[in-house]
Design a protein around this nucleic acid. Structure first.
Lengths: 197, 197, 197, 197
DNA sequence: AATGAATGAGCATTCATTCAT
DNA sequence: CATGAATGAATGCTCATTCAT
C-alpha cells in the first residue's frame, strides 16, 4: 500500500511541474523508487492516478470549506477573515490550481475522464457556493446572483490567475480574489432579516 | 505563403482541440495537406507556430479593444454596451481562451517560450487596463484598484471559466464577467470631475 | 541478456559494413530480431553500443598480446613468429581495423565519446609498446625510439592499410607490417647485455 | 563558376570537420552563401563534390611530388630534406588525411564511388612509389621491397596516424614517418652502381 | 544559373502498456 | 505485489533531392 502512496505523491509532484502529457510513467515510477511495472500493479492506466489525485485534493479542500461553513457560531468579521485566509491558500499553493487547470483541459479532451471529473467538480462547486451563501448571510446581504455562479467565477479567477501570473513578481492572486469578493459583498443589497449567532 | 497560412490554421485548430503537447507535427501537416518537411520550411520548430498564433490573436484582440478605447465620443451606455459585447466574445470564442491557457501552461514549462510570451502578455494586459480605465472614467467612477490588476483578473476569469465551464450547459462566461465588472463599477467611489463627450 | 549480446553482434557487423553514421538503430534492432525499444532497454544511446564493442574488442586484443608478452620463456624466433602471427590477424580481420578507424573518426567529432575512447586507446597502445619492447629485447637490440611511438605507428599502419587496400587484390597488410617491423629490428643498435630465457 | 568554387571550398571544409555523412547539403550551401538548389545546378549529387575535392587534392599532391622527383639534379641530402619536408605536410595538414580516410571508407561502401576512387588512388600511389625509388637511388641503396608497397605503407601510416593521434598533444606524425623511412633506407642493401647528379 | 518551397523517407529517441517470472 | 525486459507506435526533426519559377 505504501507503494501506491508513493506513486501518487510522485505523480502529483510531476504533473504539477511538467503537466499530465509532459510526465512519463518512467518518471513517476523512478521518482517513487519503483519499476514501471509496479505502477500497473496499482493503477489500471495513467489517467487513473490523475483521478485519484483529484479525489484526494478535492476531499482536502472540501474539508477546509466545511470547517468554515460548519462552524455555526462566528460573526461577520470571523467569516470574512476565514474566507480571506482561504483565498490566500490559492496563492501559496498555486501548484494545485495549475493541476486543476491541467485536469480540466484533460477532461475537455477525454470524455471518459470528463464524466468522472464533472461529478467531483460540481460537488466541489456546490460546497464553495455554500461558503459564499454563508458569507453573504453573515454580512446581512442578499447573494447578488446564483451562488454556484459566483463560486465558479471565484474558482476560475483563482485558477486562471495561477497560470497567468507566472510571469509576474509578485503575483496578486489572493489580493485580486479578495478585491472581487469584497466588492460583490459591499455592492449587494441589504437583507431584511439578519441572524448572527 | 499560402502554405504558412494553412499550417497556422491547422495548428491553432488542433492546439485548441488536443493541446500543444497532444498535437503532433504530423497531424498539423496532414490536416493542412502538406508534408512534415513543409512545416520546417516555414517554421524553425514546433514552438514557433504557437508563438505566431499568439502574435496574431493578440494583435486581433488589441485591435478590437483599440476600436472601443480609440473612439473618443461615446457615452456611459455606449461604453458599457461595447464592453459587454467584448465580454460576449469570450463565450463565443472559448477556443481562444483555451489556447491562451495552453500557451500559459507551455510558458510555465519552457523558459524560452516564457520570455517571448511575457512580452505579448504584458502589452495585452495594459491595453485591457486602458479599456477598464475608460469604462470607469465614462461611468464617472474612480478605478477601485490598479487597473492592470483588474485587467488581469478579468482575463483570468474569462480564461479560467472557458476551461472550467466545459461541463456545463449552458456556460455562463459573459454573464459572470459582466456581473463582476458591473459590481466593480457600481461599488466604486464617485469621481468629482466627470467629462462625458 | 541474450538480447544485449545479439544487439552488440548486429551492431558491430553493421558498423563495419556501413559505418557508425550509416547504421540506423532500426537496422541494428531488426537484424538482431528485436524492436527498437529493446535496444533502449539495453543501451542508453547509440554511442553506448559503440563503446561496448570497443571495450570488448580491446579486451580481446589485449589478451592476445598478454599471452605473448606474459610467456616468459621464448626465444627470439618464438617471439618473432608470435608477432608475425599477431600481424596476420590484422589482415584476416580487417573489419576490426575498419571499426577502429570508425571509432577514431567518431571520437574526432564527439567530445563525449573522445574522452571514453582515449582511455582505452592509450592503455591499448601501452600494451603494444610492451610487446615491442619484448621483441627488441629478445632480439638483443635497443628500441630505436619511444616504444609507444612505434606502437602507434604500427597500429596506424595496420588500420590505415585496412581501409586503403580495399581496392587491391590481394591486400598486403601483414606483409607490410612485418617488413616495417623487421627493418626496424635489423636496423637497431645491438644491446650490450642480452638475457634470453 | 565562382559558385562552384565556393561550394567546393565549403564542402571540403565541412567534410573534414564533420565527415561526409555528418555534413548536410544545407550546411554546404549555407556556408557558401547559396541556396541548396544552387548545389544541384553545379553537381549531380552529394558524392560528386567529394570526387571533385579528391581530384583537386590529388592533383595538388602529385604536383608537389613531381616537383621533387622531376628535379633531376639533387644530392642525397637534398632528396632526404625534400622528403622530410613532404612528410611534415601530413602533420600540418592532418585534415586532408582525415578526408582521405573518409574517402576510403566511403569507397568501401559505395561501389560506384570505389571505381572512380581506385583510379585516382593507384595513380597517386605510383607517384609516391617513384619518389621512394628516387630516394633510395640517391641514397645508393636498393629498394627493399616493391616500391608501391612501401608507398602504400607510408600513406597508410600518415593517414592512420592522422585519425589516431587526435587525442595526443603533440601528435608525432612527421617524426614517425621519418623514423620508419630512415630506418628502411639505412637498413637497405648497398647498390653497386650509384649515379648522383 | 540560381532560387526557395516542397517532398517523402529516414533518423534517434520516448512512450504507455504488457507479461512471464 | 513487484520486476525488468520487451513491444510497437509515435514524436520532433533532418536529409538528399526535385522542380516550377
Amino acid at each position: 500500500m505504501q507503494t501506491r502512496e508513493r506513486l501518487i505523491e510522485s505523480a502529483s509532484h510531476l504533473f504539477v511541474r511538467f503537466g499530465f502529457a509532459g510526465t512519463s510513467l518512467r518518471d513517476i515510477a523512478e521518482e517513487a523508487g519503483y519499476s514501471q511495472g509496479a505502477f500497473y500493479s496499482n493503477f489500471p492506466c495513467k489517467e487513473a492516478v490523475l483521478l485519484e489525485i483529484l479525489k484526494r485534493h478535492t476531499a482536502m479542500e472540501d474539508e477546509e470549506i466545511e470547517a468554515i461553513v460548519g462552524n455555526e457560531c462566528h460573526s461577520i468579521e470571523q467569516v470574512l477573515a476565514a474566507v480571506e485566509t482561504w483565498c490566500e491558500k490559492f496563492e501559496k499553493d498555486r501548484d494545485w490550481s495549475i493541476l486543476t487547470i491541467e485536469l480540466q483541459l484533460h477532461a475537455l479532451r477525454s470524455p471518459t475522464f470528463a464524466e468522472s471529473y464533472a461529478q467531483f467538480w460540481l460537488a466541489h462547486e456546490e460546497r464553495i457556493a455554500e461558503l459564499i451563501r454563508l458569507t453573504f448571510e453573515r454580512s446581512g446581504k442578499i447573494v447578488p446572483a446564483h451562488a454556484p455562479q459566483l463560486a465558479a467565477g471565484l474558482m476560475a479567477l483563482a485558477n486562471g490567475l495561477a497560470v497567468q501570473e507566472s510571469m509576474k513578481r509578485p503575483p496578486a492572486i489572493a489580493a485580486t480574489m479578495a478585491l472581487f469578493l469584497r466588492t460583490l459583498i459591499t455592492g449587494a443589497e441589504q437583507n431584511a432579516s439578519v441572524a448572527p449567532c
